[in-house]
């Protein structure tokens, strides 16, 4: 599923909303999460999961092709931890 399909599915269930408004709604949600992470904040969505930012220290990396050492600067990476309910739902009836 891609974003336009998500928007379409939500719109199908809300006939009183314009498609473009549903698009705004989905973007508002994703933008809010992005903004929070760019401030270094966490977003915890019970039952689904939590978004946070992890810091990666500077390190000496290597160019895999040449083997040359290259310094990699300290950076932050977005991180998602699956929520408990989601983890359980993924495996209900999955075990053979």
């Amino acid at each position: 599923m891609i974003k336009s399909e998500l928007v379409q599915r939500i719109a199908d269930r809300n006939p009183h909303l314009y498609l473009r408004d549903v698009e705004k709604i989905v973007n508002a949600i994703l933008d809010e999460i992005t903004k929070a992470l760019s401030r270094g904040d966490r977003v915890e969505l019970r039952g689904f999961g939590a978004f946070s930012v992890k810091r990666r220290d500077a390190r000496l990396g290597r160019n895999p092709r040449t083997g040359a050492h290259v310094p990699v600067e300290e950076k932050s990476v977005p991180f998602f931890k699956t929520g408990k309910e989601m983890r359980e739902r993924l495996n209900e009836g999955y075990l053979d």
């Binding site: 709604i25 999460i33 904040d41 966490r42 977003v43 969505l45």
Partner: peptide, 18 residues
Amino acid sequence: ESQTLTRVNLAEAVYRSV
């Protein structure tokens, strides 16, 4: 300090957008 947002904050963002 780092803050934690929840559904409430996302709902607020939606409220402001439409």
